[in-house]
Amino acid sequence: MSEWEPKIVSFLCNWCSYGAADLAGVSRMQYAPNIRVVRIPCTGRMSPKFALAALREGADAVWVSG
């Protein structure tokens, strides 16, 4: 392995950031490949348990976006 790359577990709201991610994709924009996306129906579905579960399973960071 050449260099360590972080894993960032991202909780994205279906209607906001997930849409933005989709738009970024269809617009062929370049961005860092370190995020692992979990789509949640709304940021209201987010729970501190999720963030902790991600960290416990070895994620390097958690990102919640509405």
């Binding site: 906001c16 997930y18 989709d22 960290l55 919640v64 976006s65 509405g66």
Partner: peptide, 10 residues
């Protein structure tokens, strides 16, 4: 280690 943000779908 933990980030929050607000991004609209546009």
């Amino acid at each position: 280690r933990i980030h929050f943000s607000w991004i609209s779908s546009a």
